[in-house]
Amino acid sequence: MGETMDLQHGSPFMKIPNIVFSKDYLVAAKSNVVIITAGTCQIKGETPLDLVHHNVSMFKLMISNIIQYSPLCKLTVISSPHQT
């Protein structure tokens, strides 16, 4: 949410019409760009492949909901790869 606010404060100086943050997919309706910053953390004892399977399941659900409201958007996924 803090990064969204930073972008909103700087947006008057750039050609970015609207920056929003929400868990509600309808908020992103008719968007040109959607940035996904979600992912699950690897828990102790979980293999990297297990983590990938959890994230893939989550992304399948998220992406199907996003394209329902913004079928022509460009999707960007921001991740922070690290090992526990």
Rank of each mutant, 00 (worst) to 15 (best):
M1K: 12
M1H: 08
G2N: 08
G2K: 11
E3N: 00
E3A: 01
E3G: 03
E3W: 00
T4N: 03
T4D: 06
M5L: 14
M5K: 13
M5Y: 13
M5F: 08
M5R: 13
D6M: 09
D6E: 12
L7P: 01
L7N: 05
L7C: 08
L7T: 05
Q8T: 06
H9E: 13
H9R: 15
G10V: 08
G10A: 14
G10R: 14
G10Y: 13
G10D: 08
S11V: 02
P12G: 12
P12S: 12
F13G: 15
F13P: 04
F13C: 12
M14E: 03
M14S: 09
K15L: 06
K15M: 08
I16W: 04
I16Y: 06
P17D: 03
P17F: 05
N18T: 03
V20P: 04
V20W: 06
S22P: 02
S22N: 03
D24F: 12
D24T: 14
Y25N: 00
Y25F: 15
Y25G: 01
L26F: 08
V27C: 10
V27N: 04
K30V: 04
K30F: 06
K30A: 10
K30E: 09
S31E: 02
S31Y: 05
V34Q: 00
I35R: 05
I36S: 00
I36A: 00
A38F: 03
A38V: 08
A38W: 02
G39I: 04
T40F: 15
T40C: 14
C41F: 12
I43E: 02
K44S: 09
K44Y: 07
K44C: 05
G45K: 07
E46M: 15
E46K: 15
E46V: 14
P48T: 09
L49E: 10
L49D: 10
D50G: 10
D50K: 15
D50H: 15
L51A: 03
V52P: 04
V52F: 11
H53Q: 15
V56T: 13
V56Q: 10
S57R: 13
S57V: 06
M58K: 05
M58I: 00
F59K: 13
K60S: 14
L61G: 09
S64P: 00
S64G: 05
N65E: 07
N65C: 07
I66E: 00
I66A: 00
I66V: 01
I67R: 11
I67H: 07
Q68K: 15
Q68M: 12
Q68W: 05
Y69D: 01
Y69A: 02
S70G: 07
S70V: 09
P71M: 04
L72G: 04
L72H: 02
K74H: 11
L75C: 02
T76R: 10
I78Y: 01
S79T: 11
S79Q: 07
S79V: 12
S79R: 08
S80W: 09
P81N: 06
H82Q: 10
H82T: 13
H82S: 13
Q83A: 07
Q83C: 08
T84K: 13
T84R: 14
